[in-house]
């Protein structure tokens, strides 16, 4: 009998452990990570620097393999780098020898696909149509990250993995980028895993916040939130509500109590 497994989880992490060696000593970066992520969730992984949250993302991307445990996408083991899990890095890492448009088209070109309409659609979506022929080094930091997001989206990946993508931006640009990303998430209904060390950013974007502990990185707390659903470009007053402040306090306490 063939057993049909009903599985609504896009990503499944089971007992992930990651150790690495420096100067002859074993360092445990991640320990006992169990995490299931459903389709369409916006998961923010929050934690102090050095807690291994970026390492966790690298495992999901397939850049590194965990020492123990299993990471699965749609039920199959993650064992290589794949366009189905599009990564946006902290630094945009665009190719300076290509124009903005060529950067966005890169994924399609590598996959031998031609789709100028999609490229134009996403350039327009991130508001960079008029800069399609500029080179990345002619753009500001925020604009570079827009290109990086568009470049991943043209591939129509299953999940979006974002590693502190807005942390190098100024406060005003960061807020614009958060709004842009929320709009894209609403429209495309993509599953997003977003790494940040900014509590407000997590609260403003996530449907679920995973708070991580200091090294060895473990999941300290999972919190379901819904503030993001009440935010529009015109109205972000939800952040001034009592509830928002309370959750914020709670998260800060969890982080601070560890040290």
């Amino acid at each position: 009998m063939v057993q049909v497994e009903v599985n609504e989880n896009v990503l499944e992490l089971k007992n992930i452990q990651l150790a690495y060696e420096t100067q002859g000593e074993d360092v445990l970066a991640l320990q006992n990570i169990d995490l299931n992520i459903k389709e369409g969730e916006f998961v923010c992984i929050l934690g102090p620097s050095g807690c291994g949250k970026s390492t966790l993302l690298k495992i999901l991307a397939g850049f590194i393999t965990p020492t123990e445990g299993s990471a699965k996408i749609d039920g199959s083991e993650i064992n290589s780098i794949d366009w189905n899990r599009g990564v946006v890095f902290q630094q945009a890492a665009l190719y300076p020898w290509l124009t903005v448009e060529q950067n966005v088209n890169f994924g399609l070109k590598m996959r031998k696909k031609k789709d100028a309409t999609t490229v134009r659609y996403f350039l327009d979506k991130v508001g960079l149509s008029q800069f399609s022929h500029n080179k990345p080094y002619e753009l500001s930091g925020g604009m570079k990250q827009r290109v990086a997001i568009a470049r991943v989206l043209v591939n129509n990946p299953r999940v979006l993995l974002m590693d502190e993508p807005f942390s190098a931006l100024d406060a005003l640009t960061r807020e614009q980028m958060q709004n842009l990303l929320r709009d894209i998430w609403r429209e495309t209904k993509k599953t997003i895993i977003f790494i940040t060390h900014d509590v407000d950013e997590a609260l403003l974007l996530a449907t679920r916040i995973i708070v991580m502990s200091r090294r060895p990185g473990r999941i300290a707390k999972e919190i379901d939130v819904a503030f993001t659903n009440h935010i529009t470009t015109e109205d972000n007053s939800v952040r001034f509500t009592k509830e928002f402040q309370e959750v914020r306090e709670r998260i800060l306490q969890i982080i601070n109590n560890q040290s």
Partner: peptide, 21 residues
């Protein structure tokens, strides 16, 4: 940069295309 290479592989390039492009 590691990100250049990881990014290329992540966007769907194979080893040879990553080298060339």
């Amino acid at each position: 940069k590691t990100e250049y290479i990881q990014g290329a592989l992540n966007l769907g390039a194979n080893q040879w295309k990553t080298f060339y492009y």
